Amino acid sequence: MIQSRRNFLRSSGLVVAAGALTACTITTNGKTTTLTLNTAKVKAYGQAGINAVTTILSVTSIATAMGAPAVAAIEAAGVTLSASLSAFASETNGSLTISYDNTSAKTRVDTLLVDLNAAAVALRAGLAAAQQTVTNGAINTAITTFNALLTVIDAFEGLLGISLTSVTTTQEATALSTLAVK
């Protein structure tokens, strides 16, 4: 699913529906479409994923119940996401305008979303294993953290026009707060 999403992102050119969102504006001049993203919001989404990984793995009982292979996969996804976020931040320098022919910047955004999804997939697998043995409040906290990450991903996809998100501004703010992103 993640690979097909990456292909979809690259081939779709970011749907015009994203223009209705406050974190994104779209202008068209002839055959050139330009998308301007609120980079602070995009960086917050990436940081939310990193914080979800850190928060969930910091609970010893959950990390132990997940098992070493799942923890290793989650850690690897977190490292990859962190690298994507750093590359995005470095390339954008606080602002980002993507023309459909600007493949480098567009690739940074696409990669960040793909890596955010990869971290969520790894966390989902680990949490499924942990739920079998961890029954205290820690698992509920981990699930709340994971659900906040899913909300952030949904908001990010809505920002890019990939999905018709139903995430409200309040839900997005709550999810980012849960993931300790300001």
Rank of each mutant, 00 (worst) to 15 (best):
Q3N: 12
R6F: 13
F8M: 13
S11H: 07
V15F: 02
V15S: 13
V15A: 12
A17L: 13
A18W: 04
G19H: 10
G19Q: 11
T22Q: 13
C24H: 15
C24F: 07
T25E: 15
I26M: 15
T27C: 03
T27S: 15
T28R: 15
N29I: 09
K31C: 02
T32W: 03
T33H: 04
T33C: 02
T34G: 08
L35F: 14
L35A: 14
L35S: 13
N38D: 15
N38R: 12
A40C: 05
A40L: 13
K41A: 14
K41W: 05
K41D: 11
K43C: 11
A44H: 02
Y45I: 01
G46S: 06
G46M: 02
Q47N: 11
Q47G: 09
A48V: 01
A52E: 06
T54S: 15
T54D: 13
T54R: 08
T55W: 01
T55E: 06
L57S: 04
S58Q: 01
V59E: 11
S61R: 02
A63F: 04
T64F: 01
A65R: 02
A65L: 03
M66W: 02
G67S: 03
P69A: 10
A70C: 04
A70N: 13
V71M: 11
A72S: 10
A72V: 02
A73M: 07
E75Y: 03
A76R: 15
A76Y: 07
A77W: 06
T80Y: 01
T80H: 11
L81D: 01
S82P: 04
S82M: 01
L85P: 08
L85M: 08
L85N: 08
S86R: 05
F88A: 03
A89Y: 00
S90K: 10
N93Y: 10
L96H: 04
T97D: 07
I98A: 12
I98K: 10
I98N: 09
S99C: 07
Y100P: 01
T103Q: 14
S104W: 04
A105S: 15
R108S: 05
V109R: 09
D110S: 07
T111C: 04
V114K: 11
A118F: 06
A118M: 09
A119K: 09
A120Q: 14
V121P: 09
A122W: 00
L123W: 08
L123K: 10
A125K: 12
A129D: 09
Q131P: 09
Q131H: 00
I139W: 05
N140T: 07
T141D: 12
T141I: 04
A142P: 04
I143T: 12
T144H: 05
T145S: 05
N147R: 04
A148C: 02
L149T: 05
L150K: 03
T151S: 14
T151L: 02
V152P: 08
V152F: 01
V152A: 06
V152S: 07
I153A: 12
D154R: 06
D154K: 11
A155Q: 08
A155W: 01
F156C: 09
F156I: 06
G161M: 12
I162L: 13
I162P: 15
S163R: 14
V167R: 06
V167I: 13
T168V: 00
A173P: 02
A173Y: 00
A173H: 05
A175S: 05
S177R: 10
S177L: 09
T178Q: 10
L179N: 03
A180E: 09
A180C: 07
V181A: 04
K182P: 15
